[in-house]
Design a protein around this nucleic acid. Structure first.
Length: 457
RNA sequence: GGCGUCGUGGCCAAGUGGCAAGGCAAGGGUCUGCAAAACCCUGAUCAGGGGUUCAAAUCCCCUCGACGCCUCCA
């Protein structure tokens, strides 16, 4: 069975064939670090983490590069407002982002290049483009000449004539064509700047990704990812730059995730309708967001809201409950067959453009099978191991991360022990009081024939 | 105006030609001192209209509606 994935470039699902057998090179556009990241950024990180984990599960060696844009107009503007160094500002948000991604249980990328660390590479690329007539300099700025690129627009399906260049923003009269875009921007006084053949300046937005790709992954890569808001102009321009330079197809598969929506609109910094990752994680665990992402298809918009979060949390709990220890039992060949069928169905879904919602459905069916097995006194350890494994493939934690009050455990157990005595003496009111008060402290108590268990809510 | 995505039960959502997965919520039941967890049972003909087909949620056309991109954006 082969993995199929939807390629924005061809607008269809294609069988994944890597450039090198057994290896996947994947580049994902990261954030511009000028303010706090929001759950939309988290969605993108989660989507590509899920994709990456699945490739790993299928035995591929994955090279995963995610960049930080750490120099641009907004960073400079924000730093000026705060009266601090732009590079410092970027550094601050990079650190924060890194923590968030870890909290979301995303595997760390293989490399995290930054624009400011690739200046040499960027300059030589621009020079090269200039020598081949793909770029021209005007007063210290350098632009890419879109008319020189035969297939410009192929990713986003646009023609130069159809684009209303400058419809919403004034056209720079110095450009040969309104759609020409900046490769290098001359510096104004006080801005971060690097020496270049065109004078002091800094790279344009698109060129950094082309340069980082070339540097870290080579002239051609398997998968290039990012949010679908990057298709145009960012990824279009990356293709233009990279392919004009190397003469080779750049990325084989372009993969784009849909946008997180809030209040019926795309969540974005410019609109201001956002929930930061920090805010989300203060109230919920990262896996709740991951469940939301898994339960929908990554290419479609995902609506953010408290009701949907609550649903995801309940669903997550159901999966984890199925993993709670069972008390031995009879081996069951039927159960084992079920497990194998689940695994096949799971893979079939994930193979089909990472249909995580479908795959998740089979995990819930497996959970039910496990619970039924428990009731029937069967040995469900093997089924639980499979569920645990497949949850991990999706990046779900099989247990709730240890709560803050871990030190309270001995005291909780003491209370449970005393409550056992109360129950033995049928002092129901008192024993229920203990349970209720613990519940108020987010400790859930459950009685069963095997005894009493507790866990953090 | 151009390019693109989408509209499935109360909510989230898979399915993209052959009797509509799964989760959450709800109601009924079993178990339990009670509760929780768990198990069993109950519910949609797929925005609307037309067409193709033996057969359509699934293909084609039209209408309505939502959203994204065309400026920075995951």
């Amino acid at each position: 069975m082969a993995i199929k994935l939807y390629n924005t470039l061809t607008r269809q699902k294609e069988v994944f064939e890597p450039l090198q057998p057994g290896k996947v090179s994947m580049y994902v556009c990261g954030p511009t670090v000028y303010s706090k990241a929001h759950v939309g950024h988290a969605m993108s990180a989660l989507v590509f983490d899920i994709i990456r984990r699945y490739f790993l599960y299928r035995g591929y060696n994955v090279m995963h590069v995610m960049n930080y844009t750490d120099v641009d107009d907004k960073i400079i503007q924000r730093a000026n407002q705060e009266g601090i160094d732009p590079i410092k500002l970027a550094e601050r948000y990079i650190e924060e982002y890194r923590r968030h991604v870890a909290d979301l249980n995303c595997l760390p990328a293989t490399h995290y290049p930054r624009a400011t660390q690739e200046i040499g590479q960027i300059i030589s690329m621009i020079q090269n483009l200039g020598e081949n007539d793909y770029a021209y300099a005007v007063e210290g700025d350098v632009y890419f000449r879109v008319t020189k690129d035969q297939d410009y627009g192929k990713l986003s399906g646009r023609k130069l004539e159809d684009m209303q260049a400058g419809a919403r923003i004034g056209v720079d009269e110095r450009k040969e064509h309104p759609m020409d875009f900046a490769l290098w921007k001359s510096a104004k006084p006080g801005e971060p700047a690097w020496d270049s053949p065109w004078g002091k300046g800094r790279p344009g937005w698109h060129i950094e990704c082309s340069a980082m790709n070339l540097h870290h992954l080579g002239e051609q890569i398997d998968i290039h990812g990012g949010g679908n808001d990057l298709i145009f102009p960012h990824h279009e321009n990356e293709i233009a730059q990279s392919e004009s330079l190397t003469g080779k197809p750049f990325a084989r598969y372009w993969v784009h995730n849909g946008m997180m929506q809030l209040a019926g609109q795309k969540m974005s910094k410019s609109l201001g309708n956002l929930v930061t990752i920090e805010e989300f994680l203060a109230a919920h665990e990262g896996d709740a967001l991951r469940m939301m992402v898994l339960n929908s298809s990554y290419r479609n918009p995902l609506t953010f809201g408290e009701d949907v979060i609550a649903q995801a949390e309940s669903a997550l709990e159901r999966l984890r409950n199925a993993l709670r220890p069972a008390s031995g039992g009879q081996a069951s060949p039927e159960l084992q067959q079920q497990v194998e069928a689940t695994r096949r169905a799971f893979e079939e879904c994930m193979d089909d453009d990472f249909n995580s919602a479908g795959a998740l459905g089979y995990l819930f069916e497996l959970a039910r099978t496990i619970n039924q097995g428990k009731d029937a006194g069967q040995d469900v350890a093997g089924a639980q191991a499979a569920l645990r494994e497949l949850m991990t493939v999706l990046g779900l934690r099989t247990e709730k991360p240890a709560a803050q009050g871990a030190a309270a455990a001995p005291f909780i157990e003491l209370l449970i022990e005393m409550r056992r005595e109360l129950r033995a003496q049928k002092l129901w009111a008192l024993s229920d009081l203990v349970r209720d008060r613990l519940a108020a402290l987010n400790v859930v108590i459950e009685d069963s024939k095997q005894g009493t268990t507790w866990r953090w809510k």
